Amino acid sequence: MKVTIDGHTIDVEAGTTVLEAARAIGGPSVPPTMCYYSKLKDCGGKCRCCLVEISKGSERDPRPMPKLQPSCVTAVQDGMEVKSATSPKALDARRAVSEFLLINHPLDCPVCDQAGECDLQNLAYGNKNFKTRYKEERRTFEPEDIGPYIQLHMNRCVLCYRCVKLADQLTPERVHGVIGRGDHAQISTYISKAIDNDFSGNMIDVCPVGALTDKTFRFESRVWFNKPYNAHRDCPTCSGKVTLWMFGDKVQRVTGRKDVYHEVDEFICNDCRFHHKNAEDWVIEGPRKFEKPSVLNINNYIRPLKKVHIDADELILEGREQDEKKISMPAIPYDAVELEAIKEVKEE
């Protein structure tokens, strides 16, 4: 069946969502997401960050849908026409949703370990949410140890349910979930339980904000000071394909490899993630390319550097005080005395 998104028409299979079709097209037409995760089943529809305007329902029913639809759970119909990046209504709604997500979110980016690779940070920057109109008291929680490797900062949580879905689908017994309702809802473990299984560390990777942090990496370094390398090892539990975040020759943390949408390609076990922090334990394949523009690109050692050419007089770069005056006056030629001084310097 055919679907048109922002003027781009693409053929997709039945059952494909609007978001999946937009990702197949790529570019600015792809809506942002906070709760959807393509590697997890029945995931999405919680955050409403991916709202789109459907101007034509299908060939059979060409009427537009009266309300904006979440693209991650809306199935494509044959002949459907969608406005994503070209819809002012959808863009305004996304901006409002991101402002809503930031109501209780603390402004602790300077100390948050997720800073630099935070989906909410990127979303707020893309939607230009630089100010808040919320003046009421924010809800606050104390940090909570929910396992030997994971610390929960509920203040930063946006209730995307990713960690709950992952625990349901990847681990044998889920011992945490959402308790409470409405503005009292929060992620927590059941009484006297701790999250401790072979794949619990993947909850850190799927968390879009800094709510679930790696206790072995906390406050060790900023991600933009690290160099990411693809590496692998023979692991009996998982694929063993990881990204090593290195500072010099030291491995500071190990994560799963992520795609352009910041989703893990293959989930890895806790043994690879937490117990192999020596470079000798891995076969390093080489530097990892950055998937998309972010603060990490400041430290990009892959991008070729062009030689800088300064169009100025030769002796300006020598540092002489009399020549520095000529930097802003290219239209004023040297007088005879200056030309003689230049000649003397060149002959020395």
Score class of each variant (00 low, 15 high):
Gly44Ser: 08
Cys47Arg: 01
Cys50Val: 03
Leu51Ser: 02
Glu53Cys: 03
Ile54Gln: 04
Gly57Arg: 04
Asp61Trp: 15
Pro62Gly: 03
Arg63Trp: 10
Arg63Tyr: 07
Pro64Gly: 08
Leu68Glu: 07
Gln69Met: 13
Pro70His: 02
Cys72Ile: 04
Cys72Phe: 04
Thr74Ala: 15
Thr74Met: 10
Thr74Ser: 15
Ala75Thr: 14
Asp78Leu: 07
Gly79Asp: 09
Met80Gln: 11
Met80Ala: 03
Glu81Met: 13
Val82Met: 05
Lys83Thr: 02
Ala85Arg: 06
Thr86Tyr: 03
Thr86Leu: 11
Ser87Met: 10
Pro88Ala: 04
Lys89Val: 14
Ala90Phe: 05
Leu91Arg: 14
Arg94Gly: 11
Arg94Phe: 05
Arg95Pro: 06
Ala96Met: 13
Ser98Tyr: 15
Ser98Trp: 14
Glu99Met: 12
Leu102Glu: 05
His105Gln: 07
Pro106Phe: 06
Leu107Gly: 15
Asp108Met: 07
Pro110Val: 12
Leu120Lys: 07
Tyr125Leu: 15
Gly126Pro: 01
Asn129Gly: 01
Phe130Gly: 05
Phe130Ala: 09
Lys131Phe: 14
Thr132Pro: 07
Arg133Lys: 09
Phe141Leu: 09
Glu142Met: 10
Glu142Cys: 04
Tyr149Pro: 05
Met154Trp: 00
Cys160Glu: 02
Arg162Leu: 00
Arg162Lys: 09
Arg162Val: 00
Lys165Thr: 01
Gln169Thr: 01
Pro172Asn: 07
Val175Pro: 03
His176Ala: 02
Ile179Ala: 09
Ile179His: 04
